[in-house]
């Protein structure tokens, strides 16, 4: 069983470990309050503090809901988070989300490595059958990442989300275990 503090996955550039209270720093809180970082996150509708983030971390039991910190392997610096939730015990589906808060790591491929490791965990360890995620349609960088990771388009909720004063579409992407097995071989991490 995975315990808090255990490193789950080590890659070329990053490693993941369950986030602990000790990882909830002012820097982490500042990401959630930063309009450049949170522009496509529901987090932008609230003011975040150390206390609210500790409560957030507490909400993940690492059994039915998972929260990992993404850390730079070289510097051990905390650069983001990735979550796994809505794990269905019968239908074996799950959803995931992520955030790279440290902007220096945008465009470095760190998030792709993190997603790959979480997918490996989801499909190989948890034996989940499919995983999905949704994005604001204007968030083309996120949707690009879905495509890069082999996810395919699942559908659109028309004008479901409020963004910059207008209702925009929410697009959903997903991947099955077999599809991941095939795409995984093509990835270099």
């Amino acid at each position: 069983m995975t315990k808090r503090g255990d490193v789950l996955l080590r890659g070329r550039r990053i490693f993941l470990k369950p986030l602990s209270f000790g990882d909830v720093t002012q820097e982490y809180v500042s990401w959630l309050n930063d309009p450049a970082v949170n522009q496509f996150l529901e987090a932008r509708f609230k003011k975040h503090t150390l206390a609210t983030q500790r409560a957030y971390v507490k909400g993940f039991d690492q059994k039915t809901k998972f929260l990992w910190g993404i850390f730079d392997k070289k510097t051990k610096k905390h650069i983001g988070i990735i979550t796994l939730y809505d794990i269905h015990p019968v239908h074996k589906y799950a959803n995931y989300g992520y955030l790279i808060g440290n902007k220096k790591y945008w465009g470095t491929g760190a998030v792709q490595e993190a997603i790959a490791f979480v997918f490996d965990f989801v499909f190989l360890k948890l034996r989940i059958h499919s995983i999905s995620t949704g994005a604001y349609a204007p968030n083309v960088a996120s949707v690009f990442n879905y495509k890069k990771m082999g996810l395919s388009y699942q559908g659109t909720f028309k004008e479901r989300l409020l963004y910059k004063g207008a209702f925009v579409d929410q697009v959903w992407y997903g991947i099955t275990r077999d599809e991941w097995r095939s795409i995984r071989k093509k990835l270099a991490f």
């Binding site: 945008w106 465009g107 491929g109 792709q112 960088a141 690009f144 890069k148 082999g150």
Partner: peptide, 14 residues
């Protein structure tokens, strides 16, 4: 494609 070029990330894509 994005699967043959590892460097092809979201920022490079934009």
């Amino acid at each position: 494609s994005v699967h043959t070029i590892a460097r092809w990330d979201s920022l490079q894509h934009l």
